[in-house]
């Protein structure tokens, strides 16, 4: 299941530099994931928020990644696509020896929905 273009659509991307960018994306409340999470009460699953970050990174780098480890992620606020139709995901990347170290957060106006720190490897 690819989320890009289905679960969410990219509205625009702003590059601060090659190591930092922000993507504004719109959520699709009609997506099949929301049928099960939860019926009549759509909540964006935490693991789907992780996959959104994953696909934005892959799109930025134009290569497939796998997560190696994640020291921490926090889901700070319920992300209901009927209440919050679009969010901005900020990503910072640092190339380490043999892997990629990433900091990400998802927010909209004053709300922060998630924050994470994880390391990824090229597949």
């Amino acid at each position: 299941m690819k989320l890009t273009g289905h679960f969410f659509k990219i509205l625009n991307t702003t590059h601060t530099d090659s190591k930092e960018f922000s993507t504004r994306l719109a959520l699709n409340p009609a997506h099949i994931v929301y049928k099960g999470h939860f019926p009549g009460y759509p909540v964006t699953p935490g693991v789907i928020q992780l996959q959104m970050v994953h696909e934005l990174l892959e799109g930025h780098l134009s290569k497939s990644l796998k997560m190696k480890n994640m020291s921490q992620c926090k889901f700070l606020k319920i992300l209901n696509p009927l209440e919050t139709s679009a969010i901005t995901v900020h990503l910072e990347l640092v190339e380490q020896q043999g892997y990629l170290s990433v900091k990400a957060r998802g927010e909209n106006e004053a709300d922060t929905f998630f924050k994470l720190r994880a390391n990824y490897q090229t597949k």
């Binding site: 020291s71 921490q72 319920i78």
Partner: peptide, 13 residues
């Protein structure tokens, strides 16, 4: 009650 994931840490795949 429903529950949600508040956070994940020390994840190794």
């Amino acid at each position: 009650p429903d529950g949600f994931i508040g956070g994940i840490s020390n994840l190794v795949l």
